[in-house]
Amino acid sequence: MSEVTVFEPDEPVVVEVEVNGEPVTAEVPSRMLLSDFLRQRLGLTGTHVGCEHGVCGACTVHIDGRPARSCLTLVAQTDGRSVRTVEGLACADGTLHPVQRAFKECHALQCGFCTPGFMMAVAGLLDERDDLATADDETIREEISGNVCRCTGYMNIVSAVKRAAELSNERG
């Protein structure tokens, strides 16, 4: 017995998703990627696309609080979920998230293209682990090895992870 699913790429689907705390309802083609939806429909162009196949991590956002590749996610899959992008990282009053502060302080970005995805990955990491302020470099390098940066050589990103952890701990 087999069931054949016919994929209609342009068949419209209605999605209800929370993006950076705001409810969004949209009708999209079923094949539309989350990265394209965020960038083209919502104008949230801070999320960048670096490789289109989930390797480089530039497009990382949070889905229900966990880092995910928006270039490998269909918008349809986010129905009923919450999405957070780099535009939702700082507080509403503009106070930067510890990761944003740390990336600035530590010169952990150059061209800035991979940075939003990298910061979302690190923000997710900080939610998971509270021991990074004192972790050794090797541990941190292992933890951030899902994202590619072509400019910095990672050294300052490693420092920024530690610094962000310190700032998070201070903030409590």
């Binding site: 960038r39 949230l44 162009t45 801070g46 999320t47 960048h48 696309v49 992008t85 780099v86 535009e87 990282l89 700082a90 930067l96 944003q100 990336f103 600035k104 970005l109 800035g112 293209f113 940075t115 939003p116 910061m119």
Partner: peptide, 10 residues
């Protein structure tokens, strides 16, 4: 750049 306000071509 850290607040997602960079402006690349796309």
């Amino acid at each position: 750049l850290v607040t997602g306000k960079g402006r690349y071509v796309d």
